[in-house]
Amino acid sequence: RLTVMSLQESGLKVNQPASFAIRLNGAKGKIDAKVHSPSGAVEECHVSELEPDKYAVRFIPHENGVHTIDVKFNGSHVVGSPFKVRVGEP
């Protein structure tokens, strides 16, 4: 089962990169992540390998409000996905 680490749920800033990590815990497959902005825009997140069992997911929010992040592994949502994060002040 995958572990999502260091996902900041609030206090993110517009046009500043945000990232979190995913540990695969021995699982093999493909991570896919997309961020949905409050206006409905959908953007791919950048996924990069940090070490053999750990990946970083990076995105840049372009507007204030609550964004939804879909994180999928081999086509299925990971536990807790979709995640909600707040950009800007509430």
Rank of each mutant, 00 (worst) to 15 (best):
S76H: 10
K34M: 13
L2W: 00
F20V: 07
G40F: 03
H67F: 09
A33I: 14
Q16I: 05
M5C: 14
R1F: 15
P82H: 03
S39H: 08
F20A: 00
V78A: 12
H67T: 13
L2C: 02
G26L: 02
N64I: 13
N64H: 13
N15Q: 03
V4T: 12
P82L: 01
L2H: 01
V35R: 10
E44L: 04
N15G: 13
D53C: 07
E51V: 11
S19D: 05
K30C: 12
D53V: 06
S76E: 13
E44C: 07
E43I: 15
R1P: 01
G40M: 06
A21H: 15
L24R: 06
V79N: 13
P90R: 02
I22L: 05
P52Q: 11
F20W: 08
S19F: 04
Q8W: 13
Y55M: 11
G88P: 07
P17F: 04
V85Q: 14
E89V: 04
G65F: 02
D32P: 00
D70Q: 08
R86N: 13
R86T: 14
R58E: 08
S37N: 06
H77N: 09
E89F: 14
I60H: 05
E9R: 04
N64G: 13
K28L: 09
H62I: 10
N25Y: 07
E44S: 06
E43S: 06
D70N: 09
A21I: 15
Q16W: 06
P17N: 12
G65S: 07
V35I: 13
E63W: 09
S39T: 05
D53M: 06
P38L: 01
V85G: 02
K30V: 12
V42F: 15
E43L: 07
I22T: 00
V4N: 10
P17M: 11
S10V: 04
N15F: 03
V79L: 08
P61L: 01
H62T: 10
L2K: 09
S37L: 06
H46V: 09
H46D: 03
V78Y: 04
V79K: 07
G29Q: 04
G80Q: 10
S39N: 15
A27H: 05
V79G: 11
T3H: 15
I60F: 10
G29N: 01
K54S: 04
I22Y: 00
P52G: 10
I69S: 00
N74Y: 08
G80F: 02
R23T: 07
H36P: 00
I22D: 00
R58T: 06
G11N: 11
P17C: 12
K72N: 11
I22E: 00
K28N: 04
H77T: 13
Q16R: 11
D70F: 09
V66T: 08
P90A: 04
V85C: 15
E89S: 12
H67R: 00
A21S: 14
K30T: 10
D70K: 08
C45T: 05
G29K: 02
E51D: 06
K30P: 03
H62A: 11
P61M: 02
K34G: 11
K13G: 04
V78M: 14
V4D: 10
P90G: 07
K72P: 00
D70M: 07
R1L: 08
E44T: 08
S81W: 01
V79I: 07
P17V: 10
F59M: 11
L24G: 04
N64M: 12
V14N: 03
G75H: 12
N64L: 06
A56P: 08
D70R: 07
L50E: 10
E63P: 00
S6E: 15
I69H: 00
R58P: 04
K54E: 14
F59G: 00
E89H: 04
A18C: 15
E9A: 03
V87S: 08
V66F: 11
H77C: 08
N64Y: 07
A21Y: 12
A18W: 02
R23C: 13
G80H: 04
G80T: 03
V87P: 02
V4M: 06
K28W: 07
P61Q: 00
L50R: 12
K72E: 10
V42E: 07
E49Q: 13
K54F: 05
G88T: 09
A56S: 14
A27R: 02
V4F: 14
K30L: 09
R58W: 02
I60D: 09
H67K: 00
P17D: 15
K34C: 05
S48L: 09
Y55F: 07
N15M: 04
F83P: 01
S39M: 14
P61G: 04
P38W: 01
S6Y: 15
V57E: 00
I69N: 00
A21K: 15
R58S: 03
A27Q: 08
C45E: 03
V87I: 07
D53I: 07
G88Y: 02
V14T: 05
